Amino acid sequence: MTSLAHERFCDEITRQVEELRELVTSGADLSVTVPTCPEWSLEDLLRHTGGALRWVELLVRTRATENIPDEQVPGIAGPDVRGDAAALDAWLAESGAALVTALREAGPDTRVWTWAWRQDAGFWARRMAQELTVHRADAVLAAGRPYRVAPDVAADAIDEWLEILRFVQGTGTDPEANELRRSEGSIHLHATDASGPDAEWLIEFGEDGFTWRRGHEKATVALKGPLTDLLLAFYRRLPLDAPGLEVLGDRDVLEFWLKRASFG
């Protein structure tokens, strides 16, 4: 499956970081618990996200051939003082700008270490754009504000999640992802606010794992809703009974997937 262009991902990283910074500068409560990541406060989430930006920036800028441990990443932990919104905002701005600069200078095909099936800077541009897409949803939900994402980015986020799960299942290293296999069953994802095959997905189970493709086809169970909500439900950020979502068919098959669709 072809993903978006490298520059599109770089632009999206910039935009998503700006949106996260707006939460900080507009007075969001940094101490509030993140409902979708209850072990974190909003500040913990933002520090985690900014730290990931700095880690990837160092990988890309140095053309790393192996993983770089966190303790070797300058500034990964964020500002020394917790609760300092101005310092957190400045750190996020610096982290995002440095990563985008490194990615643009490298271009998509420059060889860089990754944990995945691709070993290039293009992988990291896509991965960090989608990391931000989902963690910004976590942040926005914690702050009680509305969340939307561009349709092309949301659709690619579903594609990437499926590609990651397929890769992880193939490695056999994640017990939950490894269980995404059964003798029969399929899942149809249908975005109700978009049209054409680019707004629909089919996931089919098999004893050797699952396969997926874009397209409109009947399945054992269908999950329907606006594309953004479909993305969040598929990432387990919204419950299946959330307003606007509809489950048609064998709900157990969908819940079987959601309980096991993870990695790391």
Results as ranks from 00 to 15, higher is better:
residue 194 A to H: 12
residue 195 S to D: 15
residue 195 S to K: 14
residue 196 G to Y: 03
residue 196 G to S: 01
residue 197 P to E: 12
residue 197 P to Y: 07
residue 197 P to D: 11
residue 197 P to S: 14
residue 198 D to Q: 14
residue 198 D to R: 14
residue 198 D to L: 11
residue 199 A to K: 11
residue 199 A to L: 13
residue 200 E to W: 09
residue 200 E to Q: 14
residue 201 W to R: 08
residue 201 W to L: 04
residue 201 W to I: 03
residue 202 L to V: 15
residue 202 L to N: 06
residue 205 F to I: 10
residue 206 G to P: 04
residue 206 G to H: 04
residue 207 E to L: 10
residue 207 E to A: 14
residue 208 D to A: 15
residue 208 D to I: 08
residue 209 G to L: 11
residue 210 F to L: 11
residue 210 F to Q: 08
residue 211 T to A: 13
residue 214 R to F: 12
residue 215 G to P: 08
residue 215 G to H: 11
residue 215 G to C: 08
residue 215 G to W: 13
residue 216 H to L: 12
residue 217 E to R: 15
residue 217 E to F: 11
residue 217 E to A: 14
residue 218 K to D: 15
residue 220 T to W: 03
residue 220 T to N: 05
residue 222 A to K: 03
residue 222 A to G: 00
residue 222 A to D: 01
residue 223 L to E: 00
residue 224 K to F: 01
residue 224 K to N: 07
residue 224 K to D: 09
residue 225 G to W: 01
residue 225 G to M: 00
residue 225 G to R: 02
residue 225 G to D: 03
residue 225 G to S: 02
residue 227 L to I: 04
residue 227 L to C: 01
residue 228 T to F: 02
residue 228 T to E: 04
residue 228 T to M: 03
residue 229 D to Q: 12
residue 231 L to V: 13
residue 231 L to S: 06
residue 231 L to G: 06
residue 231 L to F: 05
residue 232 L to Y: 08
residue 232 L to V: 05
residue 233 A to T: 00
residue 233 A to N: 02
residue 234 F to I: 01
residue 234 F to L: 01
residue 234 F to D: 00
residue 235 Y to A: 02
residue 236 R to T: 07
residue 236 R to V: 02
residue 237 R to Q: 09
residue 237 R to P: 11
residue 238 L to M: 08
residue 238 L to I: 09
residue 239 P to D: 11
residue 239 P to M: 05
residue 239 P to K: 06
residue 240 L to G: 12
residue 240 L to H: 05
residue 240 L to R: 09
residue 241 D to W: 00
residue 241 D to F: 00
residue 242 A to P: 02
residue 242 A to C: 04
residue 242 A to M: 04
